[in-house]
Nucleic acid binder design. Structure first.
Lengths: 130, 130
DNA sequence: ATAAAATAATACCTACAAGTATTAATTTAT
DNA sequence: ATAAATTAATACTTGTAGGTATTATTTTAT
C-alpha cells in the first residue's frame, strides 16, 4: 500500500492548501473539499500544527495557514511526521541488518524502486506542485 | 512500509527456496532459517500452496517444493496473492478516480516512483535472483 | 497395526491504525 | 457580558493485519 492512510490524508490537506492559495483555511472548509472523516481530519490538523507545517489560530475567525514557506516543506518530512520513514529505508525482507557485502536476496532487485521513491520524496517540496 | 509484513514473509520464503536449490523444504527447516513466527509461517505456506506457487506433500517425509518453474513466478504475483496490488496502482491520495486530464495534486510527482515499483515487480521473476 | 512426522483447517487472541465522541479552551462579533 | 465559532485535548470504539492454539488429516517407517 506504499503509505498509510494518515500519510495520504496529510498529503491531501497540505497539497490542497499549497495549491489553493487562500489566506486561511478552516477545518470545516477543508472537510468540505477533501474526502476525509471530519473528526479525524480535525485531529490531524492539530498534529500538523504541532509538527510545524501549519499554524493554528483559535477562536471565531480562526483557521490554519502555513507556518513556513512551502518551498521548505519536503514530502519526506510530511510522511515522516505521521509514520516512521525508517520502515521504508530498511531491508525489504525485514532483516535487522542487510549488509552491503552480504545483502538479502531481494536487495539488488529492490534498489531501484526504493531509491526512486526515497529520492522523489526527499527532493520534492510542496512548492514543486505549482 | 511499502508492502505488508505478510508480503515480506512470502517473499522471504520463496526467495530462500529459489536460491537454496534443495529438493524439498519442510516448514520446520524454513522456520529455522527464516525469522518468521512458526505458526504464522505454517499458515502462510498453506496459502502459498493454494496460490499455486508451491506444492505440499503431507505425511512423514513431506514438505514443500515449487509447483512451477521459478522463471514464471513474478514478484507482482507473489505480492498480489497475499495483499491487494490494486491499492498500489490506485491514486496516491486515495481518490476513487484520478483522471488523466484532471489528476490529483500529487499525480505527476508520484508517477516515477510508482512506475519504478510496478515495473520492477511485474518484470522480475524468482529466477532473476540467480 | 501403530506411532511418528509432516501439512491442513479452523477458531481464537492481540496490538495498533483508523475513526468517533465529548468536553475544554480561545477568540471575536454583537 | 455573552453567545457563536473556531481549535485542542482526551478518551473511547472499531476493524483488521498479524500472531497463537487446537484439532484433524495424511503419509511412511517400524
Amino acid at each position: 500500500m506504499f503509505i498509510s492512510k494518515t500519510s495520504e490524508y496529510a498529503l491531501k490537506v497540505l497539497t490542497y492548501m499549497a495549491l489553493k492559495n487562500a489566506t486561511q483555511f478552516s477545518a470545516q472548509s477543508l472537510y468540505v473539499e477533501l474526502d476525509i472523516p471530519k473528526r479525524y481530519l480535525m485531529r490531524l490538523l492539530t498534529d500538523l500544527s504541532k509538527s510545524g507545517f501549519i499554524k493554528a489560530t483559535r477562536g471565531r475567525s480562526g483557521g490554519y495557514i502555513f507556518a513556513r514557506p512551502i518551498d521548505t516543506i519536503y514530502f519526506s518530512e510530511i510522511i515522516n511526521s505521521v509514520e516512521d520513514l525508517q520502515s521504508f529505508e530498511g531491508c525489504v525482507l525485514g532483516n535487522a541488518v542487510c549488509p552491503v557485502d552480504k545483502p538479502c536476496a531481494m536487495h539488488h532487485i529492490w534498489e531501484k524502486p526504493k531509491q526512486a521513491f526515497l529520492e522523489t520524496i526527499k527532493t520534492t517540496t510542496l512548492a514543486d506542485l505549482l
